[in-house]
Amino acid sequence: MEGGESISQAARNNNITNVSLRRWIEKYKNDVEVQSVSRSETRQHGEVEILKQHLHEVTKERDVLKAALLIIACEASYQKG
């Protein structure tokens, strides 16, 4: 539909029925909405995976720091004793 022509006019210009053109427009609109949702979900899935990796790294760092703190505490206790 060029230059704001009506659905009826566009259908006549392309030798198709109004109903066919309206169905096509509705299907196209739905397809575009589905694609938009799919892209958004894909982006969010990627972000979730990055966050999971970061959480895993931070958890490992925390565990190392806990072990180091335990070692330091044990050494301090041993030196006092």
Rank of each mutant, 00 (worst) to 15 (best):
M1N: 08
G3D: 14
S6T: 15
I7T: 11
S8T: 15
Q9Y: 04
Q9A: 10
A10Q: 02
A10K: 06
A11G: 09
A11Y: 08
N13H: 14
N15A: 11
I16E: 05
T17Y: 11
N18D: 12
N18A: 08
V19G: 05
R22A: 11
R23Q: 07
I25C: 06
E26G: 10
K27L: 12
Y28K: 15
K29N: 03
K29G: 01
N30M: 03
D31H: 03
D31F: 02
D31C: 02
E33I: 02
E33N: 13
E33W: 02
V34W: 00
S36P: 00
V37G: 00
V37K: 00
S38Q: 13
S40L: 00
S40Q: 00
E41C: 01
T42S: 02
R43Q: 12
Q44E: 15
H45Y: 10
H45T: 08
G46A: 13
G46W: 01
E47T: 05
E47S: 05
V48W: 04
V48P: 01
V48M: 06
E49W: 07
L51G: 02
K52T: 13
K52L: 15
H54V: 07
H56E: 14
H56L: 09
H56R: 13
E57M: 10
E57C: 06
T59I: 03
R62C: 08
D63Q: 12
L65T: 05
L65D: 06
K66W: 07
K66R: 12
K66M: 12
A68W: 03
A68M: 09
L69P: 02
L70N: 09
I72L: 09
I72V: 07
I72E: 08
I72D: 06
C74I: 11
E75K: 09
A76R: 09
S77G: 10
Q79H: 13
K80D: 02
G81Y: 12
G81Q: 12
G81D: 14
G81F: 14
